[in-house]
Amino acid sequence: MTGEPVTDGMENTPVDAATDADAKADWLPPSRHAIDTQLRSILCDVLGLDADDVEKFDGDTGLFGHLPELDSMAVAGLLTEMEDRLHIIIEDDDVDGEMLETYGGLLAFAEAKAIEG
């Protein structure tokens, strides 16, 4: 439909928040995509899987506790590799069950860290 005004579908959002959301929308998607790509590539390397298999991971795909090869040493290697490739620092307190349980959890964590850093 030509001529349809473009909206964010949040008509009642206060102006400040809308501006903030727009500002984020400008740069977040590519960066989020880049982190997603890198994280999948790290998982490929750690799990020894084909890129096609890891490409099928979605937010609910189980990791620690679901994939037998991901023991504590493998998770430690995974986190250290994330630090190296995503240029983030992961503290002891960051590591919890929620973050490691699913691909979605790990991705959300990596994104939060990347923004923080």
């Binding site: 504590s72 040493m73 998770v75 290697g77």
Partner: peptide
């Protein structure tokens, strides 16, 4: 060592 220490803290937490 960083990886090995981390493996230990993760296993401990488990």
């Amino acid at each position: 060592l960083r990886s090995m220490l981390r493996a230990r803290t993760i296993a401990a937490r488990e």
